[in-house]
Amino acid sequence: MVNWAAVLAVFSVYCAGVVIPGPNFVAVAHKAASSTITEAFMLVAGIVVVNLFWATCAILGIGMVFTLLPWLAVVIKFLGAAYLIWFGARLIVLRGAGLNSAPGSPAVTRRKAFLQGVATNIANPKSIAFYAAIFSAAAPPHVSIETFAAMLAVVAIVASLWYGFVAMALSHRRVADAYRKQKRWIDSVCGSVIILLGVRQMLR
Results as ranks from 00 to 15, higher is better:
Ile194Glu: 09
Ala150Asn: 01
Ala32Leu: 09
Ile194Leu: 15
Val65Ala: 14
Cys57Phe: 09
Pro141Asp: 02
Ala153Met: 11
Val93Gln: 10
Lys126Tyr: 06
Gly22Trp: 00
Thr56Met: 12
Gly117Ile: 08
Gly98Ser: 07
Val26Glu: 05
Ala107His: 06
Val2Thr: 12
Leu91Ala: 09
Gly198Glu: 05
Phe66Glu: 14
Met1Pro: 10
Asn100Gln: 12
His30Cys: 11
Ala169Ile: 13
Ile186Asp: 05
Ala113Arg: 06
Met64Leu: 13
Val48Cys: 02
Val44Leu: 03
Ser34Glu: 09
Ser101Asn: 12
Ala113Lys: 08
Lys126Gly: 07
Ile37Trp: 10
Val44Gln: 03
Ala156Trp: 03
Val118Glu: 04
Leu69Asp: 08
Gly88Asp: 04
Leu94Glu: 06
Ile122Gln: 02
Phe66Pro: 14
Val118Trp: 10
Leu99Gln: 14
Ala73Thr: 05
Leu196Asn: 00
Gly96Cys: 10
Arg184Pro: 11
Leu152Val: 05
Trp4His: 08
Asn100Tyr: 11
Trp4Met: 10
Val74Asp: 12
Val154Gly: 00
Pro23Phe: 07
Ala27Gln: 11
Trp86Arg: 06
Phe53Tyr: 06
Val28Arg: 08
Gly191Cys: 04
Ser192Tyr: 00
Pro140Lys: 01
Lys112Phe: 06
Leu197Gly: 01
Val155Lys: 03
Ile194His: 07
Ala119Trp: 11
Lys112Asp: 12
Cys15Pro: 01
Leu197Asn: 02
Asn121Met: 11
Ala82Arg: 01
Trp185Leu: 15
Leu203Ser: 05
Ala149Thr: 07
Ala129Met: 07
Tyr14Asn: 01
Met202Ile: 01
Ser160Trp: 13
Gly198Ala: 04
Met168Gln: 09
Asn100Pro: 04
Met151Ile: 09
Lys31Ile: 05
Val74Leu: 12
Asp187Pro: 03
Phe53Ala: 14
Tyr179His: 07
His30Thr: 15
Val193Met: 08
Thr120Val: 15
Val193Asp: 03
Cys57Met: 13
Leu69Tyr: 15
Val28Asn: 11
Val193Lys: 03
Ser188Arg: 06
Arg173Asp: 15
Gln116Val: 07
Leu68Asn: 15
Asp177Lys: 04
Ser144His: 05
Val49His: 04
Val74His: 10
Met42Ser: 13
Phe87Gly: 02
Lys126Trp: 04
Leu94Lys: 07
Asp187Glu: 14
Asp187Phe: 04
Ser105Ile: 13
Ala159Gln: 03
Pro23Trp: 07
Ala29Leu: 15
Ile20Asp: 01
Asn100Ser: 14
Tyr83Phe: 14
Asn51Lys: 04
Lys77Tyr: 00
Pro70Leu: 04
Arg180Cys: 11
Ser188Glu: 05
Pro23Arg: 06
Phe25Gln: 00
Ala107Met: 13
Gly80Ser: 02
Ala138Arg: 01
Leu69Thr: 15
Phe66Gln: 13
Leu115Val: 12
Ala167Pro: 11
Trp162Val: 08
Arg174Lys: 13
Val48Gln: 01
Ala45Thr: 10
Ala159Gly: 05
Ala73Gln: 12
Ala133Glu: 08
Gln116Ser: 11
Ser171Asn: 14
Arg90Cys: 02
Ala133His: 04
Leu43Phe: 08
Val154Arg: 00
Ala107Pro: 02
Ala159Val: 07
Leu84Ser: 08
Arg95Thr: 14
Ser12Met: 01
